[in-house]
């Protein structure tokens, strides 16, 4: 009998884990400014945890969210307050803070039972704004918009003191989250969520409880965003409302779209692509452009992101992961590829 996960090719996991472990050592050997690259990778890792959650919600279930920066903020602030002000150990906060964020996810999920598409996008965007106002209003704990210094992560007596340590902490969670999300999506829950995305009526007709599954999608997505928030707060060591603006929520959606929706791997690839582009490629491009053009090139980032979105949606609606799949099929069939005419 064929098992549930037999379709899933898991051979790549071991080499990937080895690559993740070896990468910082390679970086350290290759460049003296490896800590800067590690920091960028850490940001990418934290965002990956969030975008995987966003992919579950927006990609698999079809519920658009423009409020994920809000969930990230809730996770970050909850953990900062719990650990630094209430004395909760970091290890416990890693469990509790995401769960609290998950409850907010359910709260936001309720309107989603009745609205969808653009209207849901606007509602969740409103949620993002509310969270920022809430953080400012609760200044007794959050210090308002002045921002909050956060302690370093401490697990089993070990302090994660720098980007090197943080890298391993963050990527441990990235691997766990990606494997977990793939599994969930291959299970009954995943199929139910996809059925809801494709046709709510049909899903209901085959006995899928819409309320329960939609709320569950919001809950799970918010839990992952909350987890990303906890890691964000303690590894970046300073959080302020300036971090969590609407633009960040939009970037998260771009990451998922560019990577390829409803694949999980797409979210990972998209996040890595956008973060590396944002932190490494665009500054280089700016310098290069400024070297021979006397124009102000500061605003070029939004322009580049806009173009990338535009080009991907037109030419590669399946995203980066879709490109990879196509490439794989091409090489598998080589040299007997059927000529596919684009219509």
């Amino acid at each position: 009998m064929k098992g549930r996960y037999d379709e899933e090719n898991l051979k790549w996991i071991a080499p990937l884990i080895i690559l993740v472990i070896v990468l910082p050592f390679l970086l350290r050997g290759a460049t003296f400014s490896y800590r800067y690259y590690l920091y960028v990778l850490n940001i990418a890792g934290i965002y990956t945890i969030l975008t995987v959650g966003l992919d579950l919600l927006s990609g698999y279930t079809g519920l658009i969210s423009l409020g994920h920066a809000g969930f990230l903020a809730i996770g970050a602030y909850t953990s900062a307050v719990l650990v630094d002000q209430a004395g909760v150990p970091f290890g416990l906060s890693l469990i509790v803070s995401p769960l609290i964020t998950g409850l907010f996810g359910i709260l936001v999920g309720f309107p989603a039972l009745r609205i969808s598409g653009m209207y849901l996008g606007l509602t969740t965007m409103g949620f993002g704004f509310i969270v920022r106002r809430l953080i400012i209003a609760l200044r007794t704990w959050t210090e308002g918009s002045a921002g909050l210094e956060v302690s370093k992560p401490v697990l089993f007596g070990f302090t994660f003191a720098n980007d090197w340590h943080n890298y391993f902490l963050i990527y441990l969670f990235v691997i766990v989250v990606v494997v977990f999300a793939r599994r969930v999506m291959k299970s009954k829950i995943g199929r139910a969520l996809m059925a809801i995305r494709d046709s709510e009526h049909a899903a209901q007709a085959v006995g899928i409880n819409l309320v329960r599954y939609k709320l569950f999608a919001f809950f799970l997505s918010a839990v992952l965003a909350g987890l990303a928030g906890v890691l964000f707060a303690h590894t970046m060591r300073f959080i302020s409302t300036d971090h969590f603006d609407i633009l960040l929520s939009i970037y998260f959606l771009i990451m998922v779209l560019v990577g390829g929706v409803a694949t999980i791997y797409g979210a990972v690839l998209g996040t890595l692509f956008i973060v590396l582009l944002d932190f490494l490629a665009i500054p280089l491009f700016k310098d290069w452009l400024a070297s021979f053009m006397a124009v102000q090139v500061a605003d070029i980032q939004s322009l580049i992101f806009g173009c990338i979105m535009f080009l991907f949606i037109i030419f590669q609606p399946m995203g980066l992961y879709g490109m990879w799949l196509k490439m794989r099929i091409y090489w598998k069939l080589f040299p007997f590829n059927p000529k596919i005419k684009q219509t």
């Binding site: 800067y36 920091y39 940001i43 970046m236 300073f238 300036d242 971090h243």
Partner: peptide
């Protein structure tokens, strides 16, 4: 010079770049 777009996280990345690279 580096650009942080008034985003604290970009400021950290920019500072790391300035100090280390």
């Amino acid at each position: 010079m580096e650009d942080h777009q008034y985003n604290p996280q970009k400021a950290v990345a920019a500072a790391k770049k300035l100090i280390e690279q």
